[in-house]
Design a binder for these strands. Structure first.
Lengths: 156, 156
DNA sequence: ACTATTTAGACAACGTTGTTGTCCATCTTA
DNA sequence: TAAGATGGACAACAACGTTGTCTAAATAGT
């Protein structure tokens, strides 16, 4: 299309593919009782994981400051996806844990992603989809959790 | 790794692949005389294209408000990548055009993307890379220029 | 031709999310 | 026990998005 130079297409298609999956995820999450969740939140909850974390730790995982992580936690707490509890071992720390509602969103996200993957497999064939993921795995860093994308794009 | 559910990997790898390419692009652009350019700017300049545009038109292309497009143009103007000229046909309109410096960045971006693509081809094989792009083209919308990604991610 | 509507752009106010700097309480270490 | 490191909160600021309002200019309708 408008980009005559073929090199432009590779990054754009990667981004578009990501967008399509995320948009479909959130459309479906909205139908399944999670209308307020935003793309970023899924990443953050994935980073929080099942065993909980702290603001500082979360900031490190996401590649943002502890203050930014704290604000995101504030938001997720406000809409009911996480809760803060004190750490009896270390009174300074506040453990951030997913609420049952948050766990529900995370589980559903996994299921929806799974069904989206199956849709891609039905369209492309399991073999080619495997090849695609395998090739991407080969060209990308091994630690999937460099999720500092919010902010990485967009800031001057 | 941490995501036990395989469906999570597909979107993350797509995003990671995009990130790797964009990060390498900007590292190289920095070396080639464009240290101040940001990921978003490449997209915007690509959207502006060779024949110029206006703030309203640019906003529509990028999927943001005309005010947001105007602010981005302000920034690009300040750092010397675009210039505004009046439209003699319509005195209300201000045509936004790439400066020679901006054109240089766009041309270099194309060349760098091209060499990155070649690196991927060397690693994966031309055939598999073609298959990857072909498959992504199949699963993504045809209009590559829905570049409203700045803001789409990240906002509550 | 005159008026009414639409359109382009500028300006202001505001919300969100990131940053850095500062401060205090608490844990760790020497 | 004293000194340093760490977790978290608070404030100030910057970047970038939004909506609303306003003016000037082009276009449409009568």
């Amino acid at each position: 299309m408008s980009s005559a130079i073929p090199g432009f297409e590779l990054p754009l298609r990667l981004l578009l593919g990501f967008r399509v999956l995320i948009d479909e995820l959130h459309a479906e999450l909205g139908r399944q009782g999670h209308p307020d969740i935003r793309p970023m939140h899924g990443f953050v909850m994935q980073a929080i994981g099942g065993h909980g974390t702290t603001a500082v730790e979360l900031g490190r995982t996401l590649g943002v400051s502890k203050q930014a992580a704290g604000k995101t936690i504030d938001t997720l707490e406000r809409i009911g996806y996480v809760e803060r509890t004190v750490d009896p071992q270390d009174t300074r720390r506040k453990l951030v844990r997913l609420t049952p509602y948050g766990m529900d969103a995370l589980v559903r996200s996994g299921q929806i992603f799974e069904s989206l993957r199956q849709r891609w497999a039905a369209e492309l064939g399991e073999e080619r989809l495997d090849a695609l993921v395998t090739d991407l795995r080969r060209m990308t860093p091994p630690d999937m959790f460099r999720l500092d994308t919010p902010g990485w794009f967009g800031t001057l």
